[in-house]
Nucleic acid binder design. Structure first.
Length: 632
RNA sequence: GGUCCGAUAGCUCAACUGGAUAGAGCAACAGCCUUCUAAGCUGUAGGUUCGGGGUUCGAGUCCCUGUCGGAUCACCA
């Protein structure tokens, strides 16, 4: 039983003995720094039972605990708050049990199996800052669940199908001149991204050319219905009342022009051929996607992110279509006159939603239905699925889960959308069209460079081999980046300023990595002095300093924090915990020179405490995907 | 317009889900390296928790209302 649980049961016993009633919910919180004690019982809620003033209630419980409980040494009462001072023996025992438990911080298996999805990029452009938050978050939530006793499958769905990849294919086939990642020495995903940008450039130029022709009444080679649509919109434009309405109509006109540009026609043609399994098109698609996968894999490796299984949209969208058609038969969905298939969610307070286009092709929702069903077929034992996807898709997932429920899948209610906020730049949102995207590869490289620069300035590379130094820079740079992105509550949008490089001091990954490295130095010294600590050494310890107790107290919260992080799907809980632990340890470290201690037992307690902290830091940081160095 | 999020120190974020005098880091200022790593530690200064009501022993947290910012409501993904 953990210290907190023990204390809780002792207080419950006290309450029932004193007031003849059992209480389940007790409010126990850490004691404020300014008062003596470690745990505080909030007594206001108990006054109903005690029928006494808060102070008297607290006083009574405090006195009972000191007399009857073996763990409470003394107490003080401030207003309705009962501050408890636990005996040193209890703290020593707590340290002892943490020290003796090599898997401290990891909870025993709970027999549950879940799936976590993250990343899931489109295959037409490289990964960017937003993907970094997504990947780090999803990966970490998966690891945290493992620590909480779940069996976890890490997966992603790769959006390899659709018009977006055809756009890159179209641009490449027109202007690529056979360029490959090998021939250009460019990462595959960046190369494909280059042609996606090229496509955008060309389509904009072509659309503008068309528009200026149309304005002069020249409609050569333009279908009659397009011409009519254009003229209708044009009339609407001249009669638009305000600026906003004008803007809207003129963007509709632009879209119309874009849709009939030669390059757009080529891309659509490719999509059609792809669906008909035209060999040449499929070949090109496979080749270009292959380049992207290679590039992605390189980035994932750099990021330290991995997957147990990959799903491809090209494999799942047909299943989705099948299931939707089944849904039509069972009257869960309905078909409109033009052949499109819809679901009616008005009873759930939402709208009608299209599931299959009138030409029978799939939409985004269709493939997600297929993917979800396929996953539960592949892993029949999973009790839940977590989708790590940005909060702009909250509506989509609400609808998806509703639909799955309507199709009769009981597991639909165990699907969870782990929704996170955007990463904003000081200039606002990242927009690929405006070139304000922060590229993932570039950012990682910059972080590692910054880590190298600062490490060299501090003169810490002298004793390292070139390889060790390189590895250290990578560890620090990436650690800083991951910690920066994970320390913030996932639900909240966050700001990233690329001009202001990420700090390596203060509430940062490197601060914690540094604390770990310092402790390792102490442990190496202990080792060299042949100082070995065993459980029994700790048992014979008699006293602790206030600083040591504080560290043990923070340390003893580790497993609670893992539970909380799991419940909230929040690596930020772990990040805050490990920072708190490092900070508390540093205070202890600064005040008490460990090897100055002449009492052998006390010295061993300090070494044991240091080792327990280093181990906990390492485990907690690993839950965030951050490695910690032996020296830095 | 409907729905959903958010607003806390100059900046970036916390606050154990209703508890004590709202805490950290950065930036600013002042200290601490002959001892285990100063990427550290200690101080000082910085707040009408967006405004206004309400609920109660107690509100940054819950309710109502207003302001501002964002997302979403496609036969796009």
């Amino acid at each position: 039983m953990s210290l907190d649980q023990t204390l809780r049961s002792h207080i419950q016993q006290a309450v029932s003995a004193l007031f003849n009633q059992n209480v389940e919910a007790l409010q126990i919180q850490p004691t404020n720094q300014e008062f003596e004690g470690s745990h505080t019982l909030v007594c206001f809620p108990l006054t109903k039972i005690s029928r006494k003033k808060p102070e008297e209630t607290a006083e009574a419980i405090g006195r009972y605990l000191v007399e009857e409980s073996s763990i409470v040494e003394r107490f003080n009462v401030v207003k309705g708050f009962l501050n408890l001072v636990l005996s040193e023996k209890v703290w020593i025992e707590t340290l002892q049990s943490i020290f003796a438990n090599p898997s401290y911080g990891h909870l025993p298996s709970n027999g549950q199996e879940i799936m976590v999805e993250y990343s899931s990029p489109n295959t037409n452009k490289p990964l960017h800052l937003g993907h970094l938050r997504n990947n780090f978050l999803g990966w970490s939530v998966a690891e945290i669940h493992k620590a909480a006793g779940y069996q976890v499958h890490k997966v992603q769905i790769i959006n390899d199908r659709g018009i977006h990849i055809c756009k890159s294919m179209a641009a490449w086939s027109l202007y690529g001149d056979g360029e490959t990642p090998q021939s250009s020495a460019m990462k595959g995903d960046h190369l494909v991204g280059k042609y996606y940008v090229e496509f955008e450039k060309v389509i904009t130029a072509q659309a503008n050319a068309l528009l200026s022709k149309w304005e002069t009444g020249n409609f050569d080679g333009i279908a009659e219905d397009i011409r009519q649509k254009y003229q209708k919109l044009n009339d609407k434009l001249s009669s638009a009342k305000n600026e906003e309405a004008k803007k809207e109509v003129s963007s509709e006109i632009k879209d119309l022009a874009r849709s009939v540009t030669p390059i757009m026609k080529l891309a659509s043609e490719m999509l059609r051929k792809w669906e008909q399994k035209d060999p040449a098109t499929i070949d090109l698609w496979k080749t270009m996607n292959g380049w992207v996968y290679e590039g992605f894999q390189e980035t994932y490796n750099k990021m330290g992110v991995d997957f147990d299984k990959l799903y491809y949209e090209s494999d799942t969208y047909l299943l989705g279509k099948e299931e939707v058609l089944k849904g039509v038969e069972s009257a869960v969905f309905f078909k409109k006159e033009d052949g499109s298939v819809w679901v009616d969610l008005t009873a759930d307070g939402l709208d009608q939603k299209v599931l299959l286009r009138s030409d029978g092709t799939s939409v985004y929702m269709t493939q997600d239905i297929g993917t979800a069903i396929l996953r539960f077929r592949d892993f029949p034992k999973i009790t839940g699925q977590i989708y790590t996807v940005g909060n702009e898709q909250e509506y989509h997932f609400k609808v998806l889960f509703l639909i799955l429920g309507k199709l009769g899948f009981d597991w639909a209610k165990r699907c969870y959308h782990l929704s996170y906020g955007m990463v904003d730049l000081p200039t606002g949102k990242m927009k690929s069209r405006e070139g304000t995207v922060v590229d993932a590869d570039d950012l990682i490289a910059e972080m590692v460079e910054e880590a190298e620069k600062q490490t060299r300035e501090l003169g810490k590379v002298d004793e390292l081999t070139p390889n060790e130094a390189k590895e250290l820079f990578r560890m620090i740079g990436l650690g800083a980046l991951k910690f920066f992105l994970l320390k913030v509550d996932p639900k909240k949008r966050m700001l990233f300023d690329p001009n202001e490089s990420i700090q390596l001091q203060g509430f940062t990954g490197p601060f914690i990595q540094y604390t770990h490295a310092r402790i390792r130095a102490i442990l190496r010294k202990a080792e060299s002095m042949n100082l070995r600590v065993s459980d029994t050494d700790l048992a014979s310890a008699a006293s602790l300093t206030a600083g040591e107790i504080e560290v043990i107290q923070v340390l003893s919260q580790f497993e609670n924090k893992v539970r909380e992080a799991t419940k909230d799907y929040s690596p930020a809980v772990v990040a805050n915990f490990v920072y708190d632990l490092a900070k508390t340890y540093n205070q202890f470290y600064q005040n008490i020179p460990i090897f100055n201690e002449s009492d052998a037992t006390k010295l061993k307690v300090r070494v044991a405490l240091s080792r327990a902290v280093a181990d906990a830091i390492k485990k907690a940081m690993n839950l965030l995907g951050i490695q910690v160095p032996e020296r830095m």
